[in-house]
């Protein structure tokens, strides 16, 4: 029994250790800040989508809540940051803080709706909350600018020193730093007893509650947390583009983030980041020639992914690469 505990603890500690690949990845990501100008706008978009997907991973990958309306929190954060900038203070960090709080409050309130009923109810309620919010934003043009969007945001310099430039270098550095800080926090959270209890809930809710895990409270907590993360991503978009439109609340955005996360794989935190990189880079390259074909390839890819399954697909690609290498050696 005691051996079991020790080996489990060792196992958990091993899982929590930083791997070389992780460290290299983050170093490369930060090194990209110093690239010559040109790709920073795209990189900024990647970082924002990555943070948004990370937020979805917290509820889908760790708590098993599927959301079709995660844009609700992204949009809430974006509008909160935008309005604060326009009406109160241009300081981006203050906007970020307000956006996080606003999205978290919305997440906390709606979590009570989302957690009622089964998986399918959740799907519909998340979709519904986002759609209702979209329509409310559309119906209140005096606040949100309606279909014209929230214009005239003059975002102040970061930390009072770094101005947001036209090429997006500051924007990327800001988004990446936010992503990194929140990633560290998420990494710590999922490895804590709290995170482990979430995974227990996802695997078997009934058994988890029999073991004394307060299922509903945990789900409310993680849903609120994920909403806060999504709000941060929304704030990043609003501040780095100095513009908020109704698009931040659209179904398309919820679908995109779900797709990005599914491409990267759920439940390991890097899935959202990997998916965001693949998604945005593919979108950028494919849609430069023909925008509609980008969606076509995306659709086709998803069909294959869903039908064949990620394991078999990656094993297939890995196997193919290995075969090629073996052939090359011969």
């Amino acid at each position: 029994m005691k051996d079991d505990t020790i080996s489990t603890a060792r196992d958990l500690a091993r899982r929590a250790r930083w791997r070389l690949a992780e460290i290299v990845f983050w170093l490369l990501a930060f090194a990209a800040v110093f690239l010559p100008p040109g790709k920073h706008l795209l990189l900024n978009e990647v970082a924002i989508l990555a943070l948004f997907a990370l937020s979805l991973d917290l509820i889908l990958g760790y708590a098993g809540i599927i959301s079709l309306g995660h844009a609700a929190f992204f949009g809430a954060g974006a509008y909160a940051a935008g309005l604060l900038c326009k009406l109160v203070t241009p300081d981006p960090l203050a906007g970020m803080a307000v956006a996080i709080v606003a999205a978290a409050v919305l997440g906390f309130v709606t979590s009570f709706l989302v957690l009622r009923g089964t998986d399918l109810t959740r799907l519909m309620v998340t979709l519904g909350v986002a759609l209702v919010l979209h329509e409310v934003a559309n119906a209140l043009p005096q606040w949100t600018g309606g279909a014209d969007g929230l214009q005239g945001m003059a975002v102040g310099p970061l930390l009072g020193r770094f101005d947001f430039d036209l090429y997006g270098r500051t924007a990327y550095a800001y988004s990446l730093t936010t992503l990194f800080v929140l990633f560290l926090l998420a990494r710590r959270i999922v490895q804590s007893p709290f995170g482990l209890s979430l995974m227990a809930i996802r695997r078997n809710t009934l058994r988890a509650s029999a073991l004394g895990v307060p299922v509903n409270r945990r789900l409310i907590a993680v849903y609120t947390l994920a909403a806060a993360y999504a709000g941060a991503a929304g704030a990043l978009l609003a501040q780095t583009t100095a513009y908020v439109s109704l698009e931040v609340l659209e179904f398309q955005r919820s679908a995109d983030v779900l797709l990005a996360l599914i491409i990267g794989g759920t439940g390991w935190l890097y899935g959202g980041i990997a998916g965001a990189v693949v998604f945005k880079v593919l979108q950028d390259t494919l849609s430069s020639n023909a925008p509609q074909f980008w969606m076509f390839w995306m659709g086709l890819f998803l069909v294959v992914l869903a039908l064949v399954g990620r394991e078999r697909l990656s094993r297939g690609i890995g196997g193919g690469v290995r075969q090629l290498l073996a052939r090359g050696r011969r």
Binding site: A255, I262, M295, F296, M298, G299, L300, L302, V303, L305, A306, L307
Partner: peptide, 8 residues
């Protein structure tokens, strides 16, 4: 997921 892709 699949039917979403079909629709697209």
């Amino acid at each position: 997921l699949i039917t979403f892709s079909f629709a697209v």
